[in-house]
Design a protein around this nucleic acid. Structure first.
Lengths: 331, 331
DNA sequence: CACCTGTTTGCACCCGGTAGCAAAGAAAAT
DNA sequence: ATTTTCTTTGCTACCGGGTGCAAACAGGTG
């Protein structure tokens, strides 16, 4: 049961001091070609590689980034995670995925991340109030935080988001042009909903078009089931003549759940009886079974920017990026 | 820009030695009530918490588990990640999510995980050959590895999987009972496919029923698009009379893509013209738009077991767990 | 050959904890 | 009061590397 070789052991094998070994593994360090070759040979023989833990302790940088996620119900999280890990790894960073839930809340997670000395914390689509931060009163040592795909509600914490104002303007313009005049909006979990600003802009732009009243449907959370329940209770309680002619859902998952319910339970046609719009452009929205009009977030760009800020190439500041309206047959 | 407080600083503030401070933060350590109170007060004032990095270096255990993922196209990965992180965190462990791709392959990742001294590596649905391991010749120090949701192809590396034999038996029994006699099977990316053993068992059980011939459709990868392409080329090349009456797809994503294509491009009915079966029970399979018969992996149990083995409560060994056949209207 | 300059190398000390032993202090037994 | 025993505390050594400086070793010049 041999342990990992240490720099000292390699040094002895190569007939140099351990510092010379370290230099051989430090790019740009002052070391003679000759000894570097000797060291690398000895290192290869002993199968040595530097212990990143020890290095992190000494250099005070771990090259680890904590990623907080508190809602795994949106499948859109997966491609984001894919791109995020890929980009981080390209920068020599690695993602520590933290599941924020009732057993492990933001306070826990933040304390933990701090204790582990991560280089940064990404709040990915997750919410917490400023008070939480002041409760913790983590000193200056706290790792820098960034919010991804959600408005920051914390002073001094930058966010990288899709431009909700632009998105909703494009959506409302499109709907108005198509002739819809009785819009409805379905929100998801209230805690998360306000920060997305989607409902607010939706209402604002309709107002500009002269439509003041927006029917609001509230889903309990962001799931297809919740979307179905919300639309069911709406349709059951609303006379045919009073119903909306287009329903914008806060995200695709709600929209897909709503579409299923609208068609199979109420036998209504989409978009003839009710048009539906989602948000995110989740993979299945394009399937012929749904063909949902939706809005795609600029995932690559958003992640490019947030990783750039973490790597120090970009100034940390809130950045708003334009996405793309994807028009399909649900409108 | 104050740094984190250290044990030494707290010690000075509390008028004790740094070892006493450490004891106050070590559960079950021998320390007087009185001094513990003093230390905790001083620690609170200075906002001290132990540096886990330094602790890891000294104790030689990081409480970090590397999770390798190389295919983010299957949305089923997300609930697995959710449950996995939750369970790991409940054990005081944390997941380091590593994206295996062309820029960062298994060798890189393994070396990295080793350098970071992670406590274990989970190969989540990912593949690599034994040779890769011997190429690396990581000594004894290598962190223990476990394969999740996929057969292990490496000697001595245990896997936790859904029982494919049982699953396919149940599926074939069900299909046979429903009267299907001309089965087809759609495989995904070949590199991953064999390890799942699904096709093999599918063929074996049909043979037992006296059906020797299985039509095989090969998709390029595990995506809805690839599933659609595979079924399209099959249906275009196969006369109506020669076609399969039931198509089993290696996973749900292929199945959903195939269903879309079968219905919208070829105008065929499911299940009357062709029945379809998937695997995984991904959320949208239950939607009325698809209503796909599929097989659900025992996610909770699998993760319970693998985390138990990592935490040392369970003997590390390959474990095969039974899943559940979910019958819907696609068969 | 002495002198200067530039490159290599070794060293003491540090990063922030942990382990285990030995000394000091307090309580119990003689 | 003395000895024994248990609890509490301090200390040395260590985990595996990193930093900045000084010594050692070149090579070139006058």
């Amino acid at each position: 049961m041999r342990k990992r070789a240490t720099a000292k052991e390699v040094a002895d094998a190569a007939g140099v001091s351990k510092w010379t070994v370290i230099r051989a593994f430090t790019p740009g360090a002052s070391i003679a070609e000759e000894s570097k070759r000797k060291v690398l040979a000895a290192a290869a023989a002993l199968n040595y590689s530097p212990n990143l833990l020890a290095r992190s302790l000494a250099t005070n940088s771990t090259n680890q980034v904590a990623v907080f996620v508190d809602d795994f119900s949106n499948p859109q999280k997966l491609p984001f995670l894919e791109t995020l890990t890929e980009r981080l790894q390209a920068e020599g960073l690695v993602a520590v995925l933290i599941n924020i839930n009732t057993h492990f809340d933001h306070v826990h997670a933040l304390l933990h991340a701090d204790q582990r000395q991560v280089d940064a914390v990404i709040l990915f689509g997750t919410a917490f109030r400023s008070e939480t931060l002041s409760d913790l009163q983590l000193g200056r040592g706290t790792p820098p935080m960034f919010v991804l795909a959600r408005d920051s509600q914390i002073e001094g914490v930058p966010a990288v988001v899709c431009d909700a104002e632009l998105a909703l303007r494009e959506i409302v313009d499109h709907l108005h042009e198509r002739g819809y005049r009785r819009p409805g909006f379905m929100t998801g979990a209230t805690a998360l909903s306000t920060a997305l600003r989607r409902r607010q802009h939706f209402a604002d732009f309709w107002k500009q078009k002269g439509v003041d009243e927006i029917a609001v449907l509230s889903a309990e959370k962001y799931s297809a089931e919740a979307g179905a329940v919300a639309v069911r209770s709406y349709l059951e309680q609303t006379a045919r003549a009073d119903r909306v002619d287009v329903l914008m859902c806060e995200n695709d998952i709600l929209a897909l759940g709503a579409m299923d319910e609208i068609r199979s339970r109420f036998g209504l046609r989409i978009p003839e009886d009710i048009a539906v719009v989602g948000f995110d452009n989740y993979e299945f929205c394009g399937s012929p079974a749904y063909s949902l009009t939706t809005y795609e977030q600029p995932r690559q760009e958003m992640i490019q920017v947030i990783v750039g800020m973490i790597a120090g190439r970009l100034e940390p500041e809130t950045v708003t990026l334009p996405g793309t309206l994807v028009i399909r047959t649900s409108t």
